[in-house]
């Protein structure tokens, strides 16, 4: 591929130190093309949110150890600090959060919160920034935006708050948008609206988007590409169609089987047995082996290889290596 990737993770490792060390991310390699929408899929504790936060260096610096390379739009994120880091945050890369009710400051109006971001990054006057805020609220289709500009977060509904959050995140025209389970806290009907809005704005603004979710249905709905995470690493990446139609990793297959779509009434859902491993030690074998019905001695003795299935479709599994 000739285009330089918008995001590039190179052997990213994240450890949290504390009473016990947690190996949250273990040698992750992943890239995102400009204008691409990638869904980062995985269950709680698989490291998807941690991966997202490394892009803004939001992890508590005192307790986390980062290794490896992170590049966004050619910038080495790992080496950023002080003013350059603050400019990076919210300027080139911005983020929307799971709970807009908690992520917005309760004692400032929505307009003020958008405007201060614009003033911070664009250095424009307050009134110009307010104009941008109004324009953004209109773009995310909040009804009567002039009035909503003066609203406090608690005066809005959940869906509207998330729209406001999106308006805030996009107000400085970032090249990369990070979405951390942005629809999890919302009603099902509102979820769809927000997903469609995000998809639309992504195309309009030509942003790259990394969308973290544990809901495979949501991932299918919005993404160009899916990356499945398990216990701090990728187990499968590929175009959404490839991963859904032709899942190769036993974990991906398990996730798809556990989904309600296509379930038959009266039949039990096929849940994946067991629970994710504790991340106290860095893995020296396949993390999924304990829960995998195909596991062999090779899975438990060494790290699984990354296998190219086709084009962009990659699987980290011993079984695939044997098939090839």
């Amino acid at each position: 591929m000739s285009v330089t990737p918008l995001v590039e993770f190179e052997n990213l490792t994240v450890r949290f130190r504390g009473e016990r060390t947690v190996h949250a991310i273990n040698g992750l390699n992943l890239s995102l093309q400009p204008g691409e929408m990638l869904a980062l899929l995985g269950e709680s504790g698989s490291g998807k949110s941690v991966t997202l936060k490394t892009l803004l260096r939001l992890l508590p610096p005192r307790r986390s150890e980062l290794e490896g390379g992170i590049r966004v739009n050619g910038t080495d994120v790992m080496s950023l600090s002080g003013q350059a880091l603050a400019n990076h945050r919210g300027g080139d890369v911005s983020m929307i959060f799971q709970e807009p009710a908690l992520a917005l400051d309760p004692v400032y109006t929505v307009g003020e919160q958008i405007a201060e971001t614009v003033m911070r990054h664009k250095g424009v006057s307050r009134s110009a920034a307010m104009d941008v805020a109004l324009d953004m609220l209109t773009r995310v289709r909040i009804p009567s935006p002039e009035r909503r500009l003066k609203n406090y977060p608690h005066e809005m509904s959940g869906g509207m708050r998330q729209r406001a959050m999106i308006a805030l995140a996009l107000s400085c025209r970032p090249k990369l948008l990070l979405a951390d389970e942005p629809t999890t806290a919302l009603d099902a009907t509102v979820q769809i609206q927000i997903l469609l809005l995000l998809r639309e704005l992504q195309q309009e603004f030509g942003m790259g988007v990394i969308f973290v979710t544990h809901d495979i249905g949501v991932a299918v709905e919005v993404s160009d590409r899916i990356a499945v995470m398990y216990a701090g690493n990728l187990v499968e990446t590929g175009s959404t169609a490839d991963v859904i139609k032709d899942p190769r990793h036993p974990y991906t297959k398990g996730l798809l089987a556990a989904n309600l779509h296509g379930a038959v009434k009266g039949q039990r859902l096929d849940a994946i047995p067991g629970s994710p491993p504790a991340l106290e030690r860095a893995p020296d074998a396949c993390s999924f082996a304990e829960r995998c019905s195909h596991a062999t001695d090779r899975c438990r003795s060494a790290l699984p290889p990354v296998v190219n299935v086709s084009g962009q479709h990659q699987v980290t599994c011993v079984l695939e290596a044997e098939n090839v």
Binding site: L56, A86, N87, R89, G90, S94, M95, L102, A103, L104
Partner: peptide
């Protein structure tokens, strides 16, 4: 959460 969100949108320490 909103404090992290403030840092995430590039606010300086004083802000």
């Amino acid at each position: 959460d909103f404090v992290q969100a403030l840092y995430a949108k590039g606010m300086r320490h004083g802000d």
